[in-house]
Amino acid sequence: MVGVKDFEGRGIVKGVASGPALVSRTPFSFLGDVDIRTGDVIGELSDLRGQNIAGRVLVVPATRGSAGAWRFLYQLKQHGTHPVAIITGELPDPSVVQGAILSGVPIVSGLADRIGNAITDDTILRVDGQTGLIAVVDDQQP
């Protein structure tokens, strides 16, 4: 059942994960926007520049295309600097989907805007990539 503070999107990559949200309004590239050693966002085109994606539920409107994205997502996983889950607006690139399946990072698509408008950074979200359900675990908003 979907609660008032819950969201239902389209499950793209299986798996369940929870973590604090990190909300972006700009498309994200796993090749180039992030330092795999630290998880720091370094891309000049991302509004997350200066923040860190490690352990976060990354909420992005879209992923920017690169055939190499899967490798960088997998490298984030190898370094322990990966987002625990990804929520997108548009369907992510096939390469991102492949990297997420390989790395066990669930993805839910089709609701980045709705979530981005309803929550703030650090709200704890529980993402189920099988059902597409996203639950607000700990709403820190007043």
Binding site: W70, Q98, L102
Partner: peptide
Amino acid sequence: ARSNRDGFF
């Protein structure tokens, strides 16, 4: 031939 831009898969 028919190919997408794939990754690891």
